Amino acid sequence: MQDAADMPVTRVEVGLGARAYDILIGPGLVARAGDEIARRMAGVRCAVVTDENVAAVHLDALADSLGRAGVEHSAITLDPGEKTKSFGPFERVVDALLGARLERGDLVIALGGGVIGDLAGFAAGVVRRGMGFVQVPTSLLAQVDSSVGGKTGINTTHGKNLVGVFHQPRLVLADTAALDTLPAREFRAGYAEMVKYGLIDRPGFFDWLERNWRDVFAGGAARVEAIAESCRAKAAIVARDETEAGERALLNLGHTFGHALEAATGYDGRRLVHGEGVAIGMTLAHRFSVRLNQCSADDAEKVEAHLAGVGLPTRMADISGQLPGAEALLTYIMQDKKVSRGALTFILTRGIGRSYIAKDLPAAEVLSFLRENHPG
Rank of each mutant, 00 (worst) to 15 (best):
P27A: 07
M1P: 11
D22Q: 14
Q2L: 14
I23G: 05
V12D: 07
D35W: 07
L29E: 00
A5H: 10
G34T: 00
V9N: 07
G28F: 06
L24Y: 10
V30N: 08
M7Y: 12
G28H: 05
R11N: 07
G34K: 06
A33C: 06
A4V: 10
T10M: 08
I23P: 11
A33M: 03
A18R: 15
R32V: 01
V12K: 08
A33W: 02
L29S: 00
L24H: 12
E13P: 05
M7A: 15
G15V: 01
Q2H: 13
I25L: 07
A31W: 04
V12C: 11
L24D: 11
P8I: 01
V12T: 09
D35I: 03
A31P: 08
I23V: 15
V30F: 03
E13M: 12
I23L: 11
D35P: 06
G15R: 15
G15L: 12
A20N: 11
V9F: 06
M7H: 13
R11Y: 03
L24R: 15
G28K: 11
A4H: 12
D6H: 14
L24C: 13
V12I: 12
M7D: 14
G15W: 01
E13A: 11
D35M: 12
D3P: 05
A31Y: 04
R11L: 04
L16Q: 06
A4R: 10
D6P: 02
I23A: 04
D6A: 14
G34S: 09
A5N: 07
P27C: 07
A20R: 14
A33G: 03
G26I: 01
Q2M: 14
G17K: 01
P27H: 02
G28C: 07
T10F: 05
A4S: 13
D6F: 02
A33P: 09
D3L: 14
G34N: 07
V30I: 15
G34C: 13
G34D: 03
I23F: 00
T10V: 13
M1H: 15
A18Q: 11
R11Q: 13
G17Y: 00
G17H: 04
P27I: 05
A31I: 00
A5S: 13
